[in-house]
Write a protein that binds this DNA or RNA. Structure first.
Lengths: 205, 205
DNA sequence: GACGACATACCGACTGGTTGGTATGTTCGC
DNA sequence: GCGAACATACCAACCAGTCGGTATGTCGTC
């Protein structure tokens, strides 16, 4: 047995999907990129759809350790950790667009209605990512006496990042995505800033 | 000649692309939805790619009058107009997801690297949309003595909306997208709020 | 240890349907 | 009559998936 054919296929899909989307990525292309035959592909995955959903879960499995190991966790101040995450996101929006954009976000944009498995897997990926931010947001809230929905803010952060990727793709300029991340940082700073008129209940309410 | 076959094809593409993405939308499907033959399709468009790019431009042509006619333009206060735009966006994120999401954003997510024509058209659509917000942002800046890059903020607003669509698609819940729009409103309120320590030059600087 | 049964992993040719597009024919409007 | 608009038949390439096969590993029995 070759070392982990299944992972090789999914990781081959990362690159292809980020560059051309899910539907335009064929099974043959994935097999070629992973140096695996089509028979082996269908041994491991019942269908292309199953590969796609598994790839979104695998995306989380690969990126989670990266974010967990990132230096933004080091400050004692939880708000600095939240802002550090945003800064990391901003710094990542540089160079090759296909290298910093999100596999799950890309796939769900096309397949949300036609593949429940992909939608579910992508949502799992995104909500897990948001969940990983919630503890620091909660701690920052407690430290500063701020009232807000931590998970709502975390999901908003995910949305901004996903939207920034689309802007970077459309403009061909990673800087435009990074600019949106800078706005997000500014927003979070303001949310937790020690000014009395900024401590309202919930955004929009 | 039937009334505007060309537009019928592009508008048929709106629905199909929003529901299943660009690559998964076939020329046959577009023709069937527009009740047009394939021969007529290829009379009007040299290729599927040309149809796609034209569809992104057409998306702007159709949505711009809608936004121009929207009631958020009525307040005298330019900030209220900006916030009104955001509120409109938030209100639109309700009901059927395929009915409120963006054709240009969906297409560019897949095709940004493989179709320069689609990327260019989608970017045109998005930047025009942002440009339409710039005058009000500039006026709000002038009225409140706030220093910021108006176009940068407008593009950020576009990014948030696009990201909110992805979150709505992934979660299956328009409310999660609307929540992100509420955060955006809160951010813009804060940017223009009359507090001295909030009047810095540029987000992140 | 040898053997057979079974499981797993992998292979590449093949299948039937679909695809974007082409070629040719017909109708319509001027 | 002519060109634009449209229709239908056809095409080669492509697609996800199937199939019969090989190779290897594991386990139980003798």
């Amino acid at each position: 047995m070759k070392p982990d054919t299944r992972s090789a296929l999914m990781e081959a899909a990362f690159g292809l999907v980020r560059r051309q989307g899910l539907a335009a990525t064929s099974v043959d292309q994935i097999c070629a990129a992973a140096c695996v035959s089509k028979g082996a592909f269908f041994h491991h995955f019942k269908s292309k759809d199953e590969l796609a959903a598994a790839t979104a879960y695998h995306w989380s499995a690969v990126t989670e350790p990266f974010f967990e190991a990132a230096p933004y966790h080091t400050p004692d101040d939880p708000l600095e950790r939240v802002l550090g995450y945003i800064d990391l996101r901003r710094e990542m929006m540089a160079g090759e667009i296909a290298e910093f954009t999100c596999v799950a976000g890309t796939m769900v944009q096309e397949a949300w209605a036609t593949s429940p498995a992909v939608r579910c897997a992508a949502w799992d990926s995104m909500s897990r990512h948001a969940d990983a931010l919630v503890a620091d947001i909660e701690a920052a809230k407690a430290a500063r006496g701020v009232e807000l929905d931590a998970r709502g803010l975390a999901l908003h952060m995910v949305a901004v990042v996903q939207g920034a990727f689309i802007l970077a793709k459309a403009s061909g300029d990673p800087g435009i995505g990074a600019e949106s991340a800078a706005h997000l940082r500014r927003y979070v700073e303001q949310l937790f800033a020690p000014a009395p008129d900024l401590r309202s209940a919930k955004p929009g309410d």
